[in-house]
Structure formats: structure tokens, C-alpha cells
Design a protein around this nucleic acid. Sequence first.
DNA 1: CTTTAGCACTCCTTTTCCTTGAGTGCTAAC
DNA 2: GTTAGCACTCAAGGAAAAGGAGTGCTAAAG
Lengths: 358, 358
Amino acid sequence: MELSERKKQILKAVVEHYIDSAEPVGSKTIAKELGVSSATIRNEFAELCELGYLEQPHTSAGRVPSPQGYRLYVNELMERRAVSAQEAESIDETLRGRLEDMGGVLTNAGQLVSTIVNYPAYSVTSGNAALTVERFELLPVDATGFISVVMTSDKNVKSQLQSTALAFDAARLSDLKNLLNTHFTGKGRAEMSARLMSVSEQLSPEMFLVLSRTVEYAADILDEASRRDVETTGASRILKMPEYRDVDKAHELMTFLVDDKEKLPVPEDGAPLQILIGPENVNEALHDTSVVVASYDIGDGMRGLVGVVGPTRMDYATVTARLSYFAESLTKMFGKGLPPAETKKTDPQKPKELSSHV
Amino acid sequence: MELSERKKQILKAVVEHYIDSAEPVGSKTIAKELGVSSATIRNEFAELCELGYLEQPHTSAGRVPSPQGYRLYVNELMERRAVSAQEAESIDETLRGRLEDMGGVLTNAGQLVSTIVNYPAYSVTSGNAALTVERFELLPVDATGFISVVMTSDKNVKSQLQSTALAFDAARLSDLKNLLNTHFTGKGRAEMSARLMSVSEQLSPEMFLVLSRTVEYAADILDEASRRDVETTGASRILKMPEYRDVDKAHELMTFLVDDKEKLPVPEDGAPLQILIGPENVNEALHDTSVVVASYDIGDGMRGLVGVVGPTRMDYATVTARLSYFAESLTKMFGKGLPPAETKKTDPQKPKELSSHV
DNA sequence: CTTTAGCACTCCTTTTCCTTGAGTGCTAAC
DNA sequence: GTTAGCACTCAAGGAAAAGGAGTGCTAAAG
């Protein structure tokens, strides 16, 4: 059943008042706003309560939105404002500022978002499980040591110094390199291990040891890259929010954000923005918090995620606007040429368009 | 003036009771412990107050140690117990567990300590400002791209993919490599920049651009390594402590630990363990917290720091014991051979002995 | 001179009770 | 359907009282 236009207006007003006062909203307040009497509003309140959109902390208190109320608000009632010029400027500012400081914005995406929206935030770098080694390279250092360089299929290059018990002349090194490049490129972690077994017979034990060290190193790089990594920041911001004046509640959420961050929602579908309100969160511990999470495009078909965590009484309008803007900015950044003084991404992807909202 | 033996005993008892109850200690409690009457204790209390070792929240409340009281306790009274067998085992456990998971224990030292002592902790990786590039290596990839490999004087190797506007044949690459190795090795960041200017005339602008890219990359690596990096963890633990039941106080300390972590004490002298009690901290914001900080030896003459932050009513005995043990374990680990499957440190230093305490 | 028992006093904490006021639900009139 | 009116509810706040842990001081005992 569709709500009457007036009920919707009332619900919207209640939600918005509650969002910025954190106190139950009375009929008088709304009456003034809609230009009808408080008695009328009370009647409407009663019905909205029955329908499950509002709740009453106790008789003779004002009304508070229920999760269902928030949901309707977010879906239909909320004004989808874009970020204001100043907001955009300040976000761009943050983004630019950090871009120079620290190589990867990615690792700090959560931190940036947290300062932008003033709620705790998290970021997820969705690992690339399909990564393989594209090429091995070995550089002599001294009689027994060499540098192994590993270039992965996403054009990242890592290297380590490796010292061995064997004497390594140029010929041997070149043999080893050929072995590596013929057997261990273009393979996933599991297949590499398998191959390692199968070549073991053709080699002297010493040689095999060296080989396996290098392969293990490469495998570790792939592992590292495929690991989904969740980082949370700004958890302490909740202490300024009335719902967390209670230290125990605050502590509960904070330890969750630190210790169980892997349990934060990571939507699989490609929706650019997702909002989870209170009990909509699968995880019990998040039953009275809301999460807004956006995805952005890193290029190479990979995506990153940034999310915001807060009480159900979250300022959805501001958060969605700013978070969307942030995610779109990131996508654009990765679409065009990225970092100055760095050359990681080779072929700029065509920037995918992110539509603004849910 | 030296305190009488009995006064010391009393002070010790008061400190210890207060540490684990967080409530002012009355004369009766102590009387029972020392086998004298409460009146006697009260007389002693009064004197200890005058001398500045104890304080009274208000008339007719028990006594609480003053910072000066804690200081005496820490210096003379506290039992310097070593960690118990179980404690040692559990610390070793944590250390071993993490060692496999994540390459560097260093970056996680703070986190480990925090779980070990159950207070917020921080770790400082004291940057190596004297680091230089030992060797450059360039590997061809395709017509215009190559991999630049940088080996630093501490035998770490990093590399990146570099694409250029120029066509790079083997000869050119080798020229560039020689240029790099003759002019830019063994130099600090500043000198590298200077050199860059001086060689600019001998080169075509295109070539110079490529060269400078590589040098910049190397310089960034040195910068990164020289940066002092402070990380804090476990801040939320304070929420369980009675002194931080007040959300505002908690918030204040927590934001300090996150935003102003660089202001945490970083003792310069080589003391293996340092304790800073309340106002002994230079920073105002730490005036009613205590900090215990230990240093450990990374090898190559470099040292790392781990610290613990808590209320002045900190369990100094346990914290110092565990922290010392932890730091010594780290030192030992770096002294002997380090990580499995990794070969970063080449020449094992002779392990320096860390004496246990202040 | 030190220790201790005794006692009046202080002041924080807890509890109780009351008041206040915002907000409600219901009814009856418009 | 809307509104004014009214009795009712209930959390929040404050004053007053009770309770109690702990003190300081005095005077007597060791």
C-alpha cells in the first residue's frame, strides 16, 4: 500500500529532524512545518506507527524513524543532492593533497572518506586472484647472490635480494631464468606449486632449493595481491555521537571495526552505491548501525570499495552525495593518467561511468 | 630525605592497590596488610601527603598516589619480576604466529605489544637517513619501456616499470645505467638532486627526462626509508578503563593517538626502557597518562621503538616486564637469522645485550 | 616517643521523592 | 477530515535524606 503524499512528507520531516537532533520528534514540530494542527499530525503519527515506519521509545515521547522508515526515506524521500561547489572543492583538495604525499590513495581511501563524511570509514582493496607472473629476471650481485625481479601481469614489478649456498655464474643464472620463465609464468599460485614438484627431478637439490625460493617469493607476491584487505579508520569519531555516549556501546562497535573488519559488508554486485540500514546488515553486530558503501574503478577491470559506518540515524543525504562524488573522482583519476612521477598503469582504460545512486 | 622503610612499604601497598582497584585506598586496607592499626597508617598517610607522594581527592577519601609517588614506586619499590613462563610462552606464540603471516613484524610491533600488555601501544620505525643507493640496474621490457631496479645500501631491492617516449635499445639502456651507477650511487637525497642538475647539460632533454624519472624514483625510496613512521594501535582499549569512562576524555586521548601520534615520546638516548609518568611527558596532552617505551635492535646499527600508553595508574610491573621481554625477543630475532623464506638481512650482527630495566 | 582506641566530623554516593514539562491519546465540536 | 481541549503518561531533573567509608584529632596505653 502506497502512503499518502502527506504521510510521506511527515515521514521525511521526522527523519530529517531526528537526523540532526538525535531526539524524538514531537507532533508540534512537524505541525508547524506543514501548517496543520498538531492533532492532525498525531493522527498521522499513529498510523505511521501502525504501518511500521515510526517508533515510539515510550508512550508520551515523540516519534523516531524505524529502519523501515529510513529505508523509505532513502529510497524515495531523500533529496538526491549533488555535492555543493564548496564540498566538491574541499574533497578535491583532500584528494590532491594526499595524492602527492603518499603513493597510493587506495590504501588511504578509507581515511580520506572518514574525514570527508565525518563518520568511521573502511576501504576494501579487492584482491586480484587472476594475477600471474609475466616475467622473471635475475641480476647477478656477487658470487653467490643475485636479485630476482618479478613482473606481474598487472605490470607491477617487485624484487628481492637472494643469497644462496651455490656459486652462481652467468650461465647458471641464465639457466635458472629460462627455467623460471618457461615453467612459472602465466600461472596461478596453485599451478606454480604443482610445477615446482614436477621440475624437481630434473635439477640438483641445491639448484632446486634456489629455484623454489624464487618461486615462493613470486607466489607470495601473488598471494599478497590476491588478498582482500580491509582497513578501517576514524572509529573514534563515534564518540562524539549521542548514540555512543554509552562507553560500552562505543567499545563494542570500535572493537568490531578493528578486530572484525573483515565482516564489514562487501557487496558483490556492481552497484555503485549501496545502503544498508540497521537490521539489513547480515552481521548481528551491525544491527543498529548503517553502512553506506561505494565502489570505484581502478582500471584493469578491478574495483575498490569504500564504506561509511554510522548509527542508523546517519546523515544519508550528505554521506551518499559525498561518497558518490569521492568514488567517482577516484574512478576518473584512475581512468585518466594517475600519479605524477609514477608510471604504474600503462594503458589508460576508458573511464566507466558511475551513475550517482542506488 | 630518605623515606623510612615503613613509609616505603605503605607507599608500595597504596600504589599496588590503587593500580588494580582504581579507587582511593583507605587506611584500613593497608593496616590489615602491615599488621598495624589504621590510626598508625593514617599518621603515615598524612606525612606521605605532605611529602608529595600521596594525594587526597577530597577530605575523607582514601589516598591516591601522586606522580611523584609512582616515580618512587617505579624506581625503587616495584618488583622487577621477569615474565612468567606462561607469559613468555604466550608472547613467543604471538610473535611466531605473526612472523609467518606478515613479512615485517616491525610494522606490526605496536599491534603485538598492544595485545600483549592490553594497553594502547605505538611503534616507531626510526628512519635510516644515511641510506644511499648502492646500485642501479635496468632491464629492457619493450621498445620504449624498461624496469629500473634500485638496490640500497641496506641490501633492499625495489623496482618499478618505467615507460618512456624514447626508443630504448640495449646500448642506450647501458649508457643510462652507467650514468646512474657512476653519478648517483653512494649519495644522499640532496646530493642526488644536485648531481641531476650538473649532468643535465651533457644529455639530450629526452634522455634527461628519463634519467630524472629514475633518480626521482630512487630518491623517493630513500625518503621513504628515512621517514620516521609512528603507528598506534589498540586505542580503543582505554574504553574499558575507569579513568576513561568519561567519553570526552576518551575521545581526547584517542584522537591524540591517531592524529598527533608523531608527538608521542621518542627517547633519543639508548636506554632500553624508559618510563614517563604523567607530567613527566613533555606534551601537555599526555599529562595524565603514562608512557613506557622500549627500544630494540634491528641490526645494521638501527633501532626500533615500541611504546605503551595508559593512565598514570598503569600496571608498571607487568608492562615493563612484558615490554622488555618483547623488545629483547625482537632484538634476538634480528640478531640471529630472521624471517624464514626471506633473505633481507645479509650479515647477522652480533646481538647486543639489552639490560632489563630503567 | 610511638602506637592505638575512640569519636566527632566530612563529604561522596545512593536512594527517595517530588516536580516539571514535553508529548500523547481520546473525545467532541467544527 | 480537521482541530481544540483535556486528562494522562513518563522520562528527566533536582532537592532532601540516609548511608557509609574514611578522615583528623585527642587521650590513654605501651
